[in-house]
Protein backbone atom coordinates (compact mmCIF):
# COMPACT_ATOMS: atom_id res chain seq x y z
CA UNK A 1 0.00 0.00 0.00
CA UNK A 2 1.44 3.33 -0.97
CA UNK A 3 0.42 6.34 1.07
CA UNK A 4 -0.67 9.57 -0.61
CA UNK A 5 2.02 12.24 -0.78
CA UNK A 6 0.47 15.32 0.82
CA UNK A 7 3.36 17.71 0.60
CA UNK A 8 6.16 17.38 -1.90
CA UNK A 9 9.21 19.67 -1.77
CA UNK A 10 11.75 19.45 -4.60
CA UNK A 11 15.10 21.19 -4.89
CA UNK A 12 14.33 23.94 -2.38
CA UNK A 13 17.13 26.46 -2.10
CA UNK A 14 17.28 29.64 -0.07
CA UNK A 15 20.12 31.60 1.46
CA UNK A 16 20.15 34.62 3.73
CA UNK A 17 23.30 36.56 2.91
CA UNK A 18 26.08 34.05 3.47
CA UNK A 19 23.94 31.59 5.42
CA UNK A 20 22.67 28.67 3.39
CA UNK A 21 19.41 27.43 4.89
CA UNK A 22 18.43 25.12 2.07
CA UNK A 23 20.46 23.93 -0.88
CA UNK A 24 18.50 21.31 -2.76
CA UNK A 25 16.05 20.02 -0.18
CA UNK A 26 13.79 17.17 -1.29
CA UNK A 27 11.16 16.11 1.22
CA UNK A 28 7.83 14.28 1.03
CA UNK A 29 5.18 14.27 3.72
CA UNK A 30 2.90 11.25 3.53
CA UNK A 31 -0.73 11.31 4.52
CA UNK A 32 -1.32 10.16 8.09
CA UNK A 33 2.25 10.26 9.33
CA UNK A 34 3.87 12.24 12.10
CA UNK A 35 7.12 13.48 10.66
CA UNK A 36 9.76 15.04 12.88
CA UNK A 37 12.42 17.31 11.43
CA UNK A 38 15.59 17.52 13.49
CA UNK A 39 18.90 19.21 12.89
CA UNK A 40 21.46 21.60 14.34
CA UNK A 41 20.38 25.09 15.43
CA UNK A 42 20.08 27.49 12.51
CA UNK A 43 20.04 24.65 9.98
CA UNK A 44 16.88 25.98 8.30
CA UNK A 45 14.13 23.86 9.79
CA UNK A 46 11.88 26.83 10.56
CA UNK A 47 12.71 28.25 7.14
CA UNK A 48 11.16 25.11 5.68
CA UNK A 49 7.91 25.82 7.53
CA UNK A 50 8.06 29.41 6.33
CA UNK A 51 8.44 28.28 2.72
CA UNK A 52 5.77 25.60 2.97
CA UNK A 53 3.26 28.14 4.29
CA UNK A 54 4.14 30.85 1.78
CA UNK A 55 5.75 33.21 4.28
CA UNK A 56 9.05 33.00 2.40
CA UNK A 57 9.62 32.38 -1.27
CA UNK A 58 12.48 30.00 -2.07
CA UNK A 59 15.16 31.13 -4.51
CA UNK A 60 14.82 27.80 -6.28
CA UNK A 61 12.63 24.73 -6.05
CA UNK A 62 8.96 23.96 -5.72
CA UNK A 63 6.48 22.88 -3.09
CA UNK A 64 3.39 20.95 -4.10
CA UNK A 65 0.40 20.20 -1.91
CA UNK A 66 -1.74 17.31 -3.16
CA UNK A 67 -0.02 17.66 -6.52
CA UNK A 68 -0.82 21.38 -6.83
CA UNK A 69 2.04 23.84 -6.85
CA UNK A 70 1.79 26.28 -3.93
CA UNK A 71 5.28 27.79 -3.95
CA UNK A 72 4.32 31.36 -4.78
CA UNK A 73 1.05 31.53 -2.86
CA UNK A 74 0.41 33.71 0.18
CA UNK A 75 -0.05 32.26 3.68
CA UNK A 76 -3.80 32.90 3.66
CA UNK A 77 -4.27 31.02 0.38
CA UNK A 78 -2.17 28.10 1.55
CA UNK A 79 -4.17 28.03 4.78
CA UNK A 80 -7.32 27.71 2.68
CA UNK A 81 -5.76 24.81 0.73
CA UNK A 82 -5.56 22.90 4.01
CA UNK A 83 -2.17 23.56 5.61
CA UNK A 84 -2.31 25.04 9.10
CA UNK A 85 0.56 26.17 11.22
CA UNK A 86 1.34 26.33 14.92
CA UNK A 87 4.16 28.59 15.98
CA UNK A 88 7.21 28.21 18.18
CA UNK A 89 6.11 31.37 19.97
CA UNK A 90 2.30 31.10 20.16
CA UNK A 91 0.61 33.59 17.86
CA UNK A 92 -2.69 34.41 19.47
CA UNK A 93 -5.12 37.29 19.76
CA UNK A 94 -4.08 38.21 23.27
CA UNK A 95 -6.97 40.62 23.91
CA UNK A 96 -9.50 37.93 23.08
CA UNK A 97 -10.57 35.00 25.24
CA UNK A 98 -9.50 31.48 24.34
CA UNK A 99 -12.89 30.52 22.93
CA UNK A 100 -12.96 33.76 20.93
CA UNK A 101 -9.57 32.91 19.44
CA UNK A 102 -11.03 29.62 18.22
CA UNK A 103 -14.26 31.22 17.03
CA UNK A 104 -12.33 33.77 14.99
CA UNK A 105 -10.43 30.88 13.44
CA UNK A 106 -13.68 29.05 12.72
CA UNK A 107 -15.14 32.19 11.13
CA UNK A 108 -12.01 32.57 9.04
CA UNK A 109 -12.27 28.97 7.92
CA UNK A 110 -15.95 29.09 7.01
CA UNK A 111 -15.63 32.57 5.51
CA UNK A 112 -18.53 33.56 7.73
CA UNK A 113 -17.85 37.25 8.04
CA UNK A 114 -21.42 38.30 8.74
CA UNK A 115 -21.66 41.79 10.13
CA UNK A 116 -24.68 41.61 12.39
CA UNK A 117 -24.34 38.28 14.15
CA UNK A 118 -22.36 37.99 17.37
CA UNK A 119 -19.15 35.99 17.21
CA UNK A 120 -20.40 34.02 20.19
CA UNK A 121 -23.53 32.90 18.35
CA UNK A 122 -21.68 31.22 15.50
CA UNK A 123 -22.96 27.71 14.73
CA UNK A 124 -19.40 26.39 15.18
CA UNK A 125 -19.41 27.25 18.86
CA UNK A 126 -20.14 23.79 20.23
CA UNK A 127 -17.63 22.28 17.83
CA UNK A 128 -14.99 24.71 19.12
CA UNK A 129 -15.88 23.81 22.69
CA UNK A 130 -15.27 20.14 21.94
CA UNK A 131 -11.96 21.10 20.39
CA UNK A 132 -11.06 22.76 23.70
CA UNK A 133 -11.98 19.49 25.40
CA UNK A 134 -9.84 17.60 22.94
CA UNK A 135 -6.73 19.59 23.87
CA UNK A 136 -7.78 19.77 27.54
CA UNK A 137 -8.11 23.53 27.86
CA UNK A 138 -11.86 23.86 28.34
CA UNK A 139 -11.18 25.23 31.83
CA UNK A 140 -9.58 28.38 30.43
CA UNK A 141 -12.17 28.96 27.66
CA UNK A 142 -13.22 32.36 29.00
CA UNK A 143 -9.80 33.59 30.07
CA UNK A 144 -7.96 36.10 27.94
CA UNK A 145 -5.21 34.45 25.90
CA UNK A 146 -2.78 37.08 27.16
CA UNK A 147 -3.26 35.93 30.78
CA UNK A 148 -2.33 32.28 30.21
CA UNK A 149 0.98 30.58 30.99
CA UNK A 150 3.16 29.55 28.06
CA UNK A 151 2.19 25.86 28.14
CA UNK A 152 -1.51 26.65 27.83
CA UNK A 153 -0.85 29.19 25.12
CA UNK A 154 0.94 26.54 23.10
CA UNK A 155 -2.13 24.34 23.29
CA UNK A 156 -4.41 27.23 22.35
CA UNK A 157 -2.14 27.96 19.40
CA UNK A 158 -2.46 24.36 18.22
CA UNK A 159 -6.21 24.35 18.87
CA UNK A 160 -6.53 27.49 16.72
CA UNK A 161 -4.68 25.67 13.93
CA UNK A 162 -6.93 22.60 14.34
CA UNK A 163 -10.02 24.82 14.19
CA UNK A 164 -9.15 25.32 10.53
CA UNK A 165 -9.68 21.58 9.94
CA UNK A 166 -6.36 21.22 8.14
CA UNK A 167 -5.16 18.10 6.34
CA UNK A 168 -1.62 18.98 7.30
CA UNK A 169 -0.45 20.70 10.47
CA UNK A 170 3.04 22.17 10.63
CA UNK A 171 4.34 22.71 14.16
CA UNK A 172 7.47 24.49 15.23
CA UNK A 173 8.79 22.99 18.45
CA UNK A 174 5.41 22.30 20.01
CA UNK A 175 6.88 21.86 23.47
CA UNK A 176 9.59 24.51 23.56
CA UNK A 177 9.14 26.97 26.38
CA UNK A 178 7.14 24.42 28.32
CA UNK A 179 8.38 23.06 31.65
CA UNK A 180 10.01 19.68 31.01
CA UNK A 181 7.67 18.03 33.51
CA UNK A 182 4.73 19.03 31.30
CA UNK A 183 6.20 18.19 27.93
CA UNK A 184 5.05 14.60 27.73
CA UNK A 185 1.61 15.45 29.05
CA UNK A 186 1.17 18.12 26.38
CA UNK A 187 2.46 15.88 23.60
CA UNK A 188 0.19 13.02 24.71
CA UNK A 189 -2.81 15.34 24.47
CA UNK A 190 -1.64 16.72 21.17
CA UNK A 191 -0.94 13.40 19.47
CA UNK A 192 -4.26 12.00 20.60
CA UNK A 193 -6.00 15.06 19.17
CA UNK A 194 -4.16 14.76 15.85
CA UNK A 195 -5.02 11.10 15.55
CA UNK A 196 -8.64 11.70 16.41
CA UNK A 197 -8.91 14.43 13.77
CA UNK A 198 -6.83 12.43 11.25
CA UNK A 199 -4.45 15.30 10.73
CA UNK A 200 -1.05 14.64 9.22
CA UNK A 201 1.65 16.51 11.10
CA UNK A 202 5.17 17.76 10.71
CA UNK A 203 7.00 19.00 13.76
CA UNK A 204 10.36 20.61 14.12
CA UNK A 205 11.92 19.29 17.31
CA UNK A 206 15.08 19.56 19.38
CA UNK A 207 14.26 17.08 22.05
CA UNK A 208 15.26 13.54 20.98
CA UNK A 209 12.99 11.98 23.61
CA UNK A 210 10.05 13.66 21.89
CA UNK A 211 11.16 12.38 18.51
CA UNK A 212 11.63 8.78 19.68
CA UNK A 213 8.36 8.72 21.48
CA UNK A 214 6.03 10.52 19.09
CA UNK A 215 7.34 10.55 15.52
CA UNK A 216 6.63 7.85 12.91
CA UNK A 217 9.47 9.09 10.79
CA UNK A 218 12.31 11.51 11.30
CA UNK A 219 14.19 13.62 8.75
CA UNK A 220 17.58 15.11 9.52
CA UNK A 221 18.11 18.60 8.13
CA UNK A 222 21.74 19.62 8.09
CA UNK A 223 24.02 21.68 5.86
CA UNK A 224 21.08 22.74 3.67
CA UNK A 225 20.01 19.18 2.81
CA UNK A 226 17.96 16.30 4.14
CA UNK A 227 20.77 13.99 5.15
CA UNK A 228 18.74 10.96 6.04
CA UNK A 229 15.17 10.04 6.86
CA UNK A 230 13.51 6.96 8.27
CA UNK A 231 12.09 5.42 11.44
CA UNK A 232 13.39 7.21 14.58
CA UNK A 233 15.17 4.16 16.02
CA UNK A 234 17.15 3.69 12.81
CA UNK A 235 17.99 7.33 12.16
CA UNK A 236 18.94 8.17 15.72
CA UNK A 237 21.28 5.15 15.80
CA UNK A 238 23.19 6.43 12.76
CA UNK A 239 26.74 7.34 13.88
CA UNK A 240 26.94 10.51 11.77
CA UNK A 241 23.60 11.74 13.07
CA UNK A 242 24.67 10.96 16.62
CA UNK A 243 27.80 12.98 16.20
CA UNK A 244 26.56 15.98 14.22
CA UNK A 245 22.99 16.44 15.37
CA UNK A 246 22.56 14.86 18.75
CA UNK A 247 26.09 15.66 19.81
CA UNK A 248 27.23 12.46 21.46
Amino acid sequence: MTAIVLLEARGLAIRFGGVVAADGVDLDVLEGEKLAIIGPNGAGKTTFLNIATGYLKPQAGTVKFLGKEITAHRPRDITRFGIARAFQIPQLFLDHTVIENLLIAAAGHSGRTTLMRSLHDLPERSEMESLLDLVSIRDVADRKAGELPEGKRKLVDIAVALALKPRLLLMDEPTSGVASSEKFAIMDILVAALEKQRVTSVFVEHDMDMVTRYADRVAVWSAGKIQISGPPAEVLADPVVREQVIGI
Partner: peptide, 17 residues
Protein backbone atom coordinates in the same frame (compact mmCIF):
# COMPACT_ATOMS: atom_id res chain seq x y z
CA UNK B 1 -13.54 40.74 16.16
CA UNK B 2 -11.19 40.24 13.23
CA UNK B 3 -10.76 44.01 13.17
CA UNK B 4 -9.53 43.84 16.77
CA UNK B 5 -7.38 40.87 15.77
CA UNK B 6 -5.55 43.10 13.26
CA UNK B 7 -4.39 45.12 16.23
CA UNK B 8 -3.26 42.16 18.31
CA UNK B 9 -1.83 39.76 15.70
CA UNK B 10 -2.15 40.38 12.00
CA UNK B 11 0.20 37.50 11.12
CA UNK B 12 -2.03 34.96 12.80
CA UNK B 13 -5.06 36.44 11.10
CA UNK B 14 -3.46 35.82 7.70
CA UNK B 15 -2.61 32.29 8.85
CA UNK B 16 -6.32 31.74 9.45
CA UNK B 17 -6.91 32.32 5.76
Amino acid sequence: NMLRAIKSNETRLEYLG
